[in-house]
Amino acid sequence: MELTIDKLSKHYGDSIAVDTFSIVLQPGIYGLLGANGSGKTTLMRMICDILKSTSGEVKYNNTNIKKLGEDYRDILGYLPQHFGYYPDFKAYDFLMYFASLKGLPHFKAKEKSLELLEIVNLTEVKNKKIKSFSGGMKQRLGIAQAMLNDPKILILDEPTAGLDPKERVRFRNLISTFGKDRIIILSTHIVSDVEYIADEIIVMKSGQLLNKGNVTQITKSIEGFVWECTVPSKEVKYLNETYTVSNLKNVGDQVSLRIIADKKPCEGAVNTPPNLEDLYLYYFEEGPAL
């Protein structure tokens, strides 16, 4: 199983949302990382074939997804950034409705809907109207909807938005379990969402692919740029204004800082191994949003 994104571009007049983006995806969990406006949603919509590309193509097992049509949608699961719902639908009805659109026979739709309601912890409220749900509950229902047809390709746009920490952990475990033999792409600008579960991180900036690899590989690119130092409080303002500070902690009279900088930011600063959050700040702190 292989999903190929080949020189995919999307232009809106003079603005370029996605710029000759190419990547080959094998089964695994991919975290699509990028600032707001970096083109993540546009890219995902094109992969889902709900948005026409200006140029380039998306291929599933070497066949253009447009040619596959219904067969491609049959193996696709998608949760958009803004999860919409019919307010008068009950949670169970909502899943049954989508199961019918996904072509599931009635007996299987029923079984799958109940199973997913259990997984996303909504069984107790399955007969309640969605409009009475909290943001997290709606999001969980959206995740269940995307998984109804056991998709081979699962695309989740900001899936953890609105989830509390406990729900986030539950979601991460669910995706890790579900991820076997599937291609899962989840976009986020919350680093911790993908740090633990993604096999590979795809970094996107201004519509282009900036970096790709596992956490160790991609953080290697900023090795030597992350510093830790402890300074008197009066120096903090200057350092904060001059450099990208990823962490700041008061230690008695002094302040411990984690700084991302090309060169040593202050006396006594020592290099420290970078993490994904450092990488994100390095790429996006000053980067222009589209």
């Binding site: 919509r45 889902c48 074939d49 709900i50 219904e70 949608r73 049959d74 696709l76 699961g77 998608y78 949760l79 958009p80 803004h82 999860f83 919409g84 719902y85 019919y86 307010p87 989508f98 019918s100 659109l101 996904k102 072509g103 959206g142 909807q145 995307a146 047809n149």
Partner: peptide, 14 residues
């Protein structure tokens, strides 16, 4: 009106 079109568009019966 309810912003469900995106999800409906990606279903087998689009």
């Amino acid at each position: 009106n309810h912003h469900v079109w995106e999800m409906e568009s990606t279903c087998k019966f689009d």
